[in-house]
Design a protein around this nucleic acid. Structure first.
Length: 441
RNA sequence: GCCCUCAUCGUCUAACGGUUAGGACACCGGAUUCUCAUUCCGGCAAUCGGGGUUCGAUUCCCCGUGGGGGUGCCA
């Protein structure tokens, strides 16, 4: 099969953060390249010299890889148009500057080099927005007085040199495209196809998402143990829709149906709650083996799970938890009492316990019932049997016992199914916790 | 100010010019004779305003209004 002529690029500048807006732009470029069987180029626009570039670049590359956005040409893998960092391409910029000078397209003023605009409106044919015309009225600087080239110039030069066919970027660049078209023409090239994608706006208040907004940084989701596929899936939904009342779908299907003209024109507000919901969907629907691999290290890091617990125990606990979670980071709080005697007691749960009529009496009754029965037969159904006959004997509801004992055992008012929870905790542990609870009240 | 752009529930979105305007998040209610942060069921909730074009407009055109972006020797 002949390679697709589609070549797209993501051209971030390493600022030390991987902003969610940039990530979505990268994602849409990547999706389009993969959809077309084209090439996805990663180009680093590091024209700000004095910055901790190594560190900042790391954040970017790690974030891209975490999201599963692999590039075909770029840093660490090279390619036919290397180097892929603008700080290393000054020879090329000098060469293209000479072309402009030879064509009489620029002049010097105040030590800087200025581009002379044509005075004619530029037109772009945007894949999302249709034809857009704009007159670039004023000449603009392409080389600063310190000799460094500015964004508009290097951006266009590299798109020419790297044979970029489609420029997919944020709508904040729409007004810039008249500058860029002028540069393409002056350099003797037709401009590429453009696709200006909508911006991601703050959840509340005016303006687009900024680094400071909650949820704005990809590396935070990584740190918070979000599922990268879930974050990526959510990002797909900002400005694009798979239609057919579907939202959560595997990336291969998204790649198959993704296309530029279907991208929305209007900006989208970021919604962290919906992201959390989608993360929960991914978490609960993933195979248990995958869930265990992600969850166990978190419990270890929290100092809860140790070698003494054993893998079988850890797995049975986590199997119980998987179906309840929205975020992996909730896990330590959610199940600490399975691993430690010094588990936290939830304040609301305590309030409920105190408010419940005779809760402590129920706990004592339950403890006595266990003592009478013994813990020889200790499994979910035997515990259920025990609770039911106890309730029948005292004329209470099973819930009266369950709620009270749940708090006594776990310090929580919510959690996994009661009978399964006690089975896994074990009869001896249950008894000893209830003893110490009743004697300390 | 000037230039560009956009406009469906609170939010993300769907709807060849003909639909009771659909789905999802959030929120509210109910069920799961044990909780809920799971699951299921139900509810609330939208075509920015005004003119056209048309038998018929969320959809096409114009004008307002509102939002967003640009207007740097930032990217």
């Amino acid at each position: 099969m002949a390679p697709s002529p589609v070549r797209v690029r993501f051209a971030p500048s390493p600022t030390g953060f991987f902003h969610i807006g940039g990530a979505r732009t990268a994602l849409f470029n990547w999706l389009y390249a993969r959809h077309c069987g084209g090439t996805f180029v990663l180009r680093i626009e590091d024209t700000d010299r004095e910055r901790d570039s190594e560190e900042a670049l790391r954040v970017l590359l790690d974030g891209m890889r975490w999201l599963g956005l692999d590039w075909d040409e770029g840093p660490e893998i090279g390619g036919p148009h290397a180097p892929y960092a603008q700080s290393k391409r000054s020879d090329i910029y000098g060469e293209y500057l000479r072309k402009l000078q030879n064509g009489g397209h620029c002049y010097e003023k105040d030590g800087a080099i200025w581009f002379r605009v044509s005075g004619k409106p530029s037109q772009i044919d945007d894949e999302i927005r249709g034809k857009i015309q704009r007159l670039e009225e004023k000449d603009f600087v392409i080389f600063r007085s310190d000799g460094s080239p500015v964004f508009h110039f290097v951006n266009v030069v590299d798109d020419i040199a790297m044979e970029i066919s489609h420029v997919i970027r944020g709508e904040d660049h729409l007004s810039n495209s008249s500058k860029h078209v002028e540069l393409f023409r002056a350099l003797g090239h037709n401009p590429p196809h453009f696709a200006h994608i909508p911006l991601i706006l703050k959840t509340n208040g005016p303006g687009k998402m900024s680094k400071r907004d909650s949820g704005a940084l990809i590396e935070d989701y990584c740190r918070r143990n979000y599922i990268p596929e879930a974050v990526r899936n959510y990002l797909c939904l900002l400005g694009w829709s798979p239609k057919g009342d579907r939202e959560i779908l595997p990336i291969d299907e998204i790649i198959a149906i993704f296309d530029l003209p279907e991208i929305n024109k209007n900006n989208a507000r970021f919604d962290e709650k919906k992201l959390a919901h989608i993360n929960g969907e991914y978490l609960r629907n993933m195979p248990f083996g995958d869930f265990y691999c992600r969850a166990a290290p978190i419990l270890r890091a929290a100092g809860l799970l140790t070698d003494s617990h054993g893998e079988t125990y850890a797995k049975s606990v986590l199997r119980l938890c998987q179906e309840k979670l929205r975020e992996l980071d909730e896990l330590p709080n959610f199940c600490a009492y399975f691993f430690s005697e010094s588990f936290p007691k939830n304040a609301d749960a305590l309030a409920k316990f105190k408010a419940a009529d005779g809760a402590i009496v129920r706990v004592r009754e339950f403890l006595n019932a266990i003592k009478n029965e013994g813990v020889g037969q200790w499994n979910a159904s035997s515990i259920e049997q025990l609770v039911k006959s106890l309730a029948a004997a005292t004329g209470r509801k099973t819930g009266d016992y369950i709620h009270a004992v749940r708090y006594a055992i776990s310090g929580q008012s919510v959690g996994p199914g009661f009978y399964g929870m006690l089975e896994i905790l074990g009869g001896n542990c249950t008894v000893s916790r209830l003893k110490s609870f009743t004697s300390n009240v």
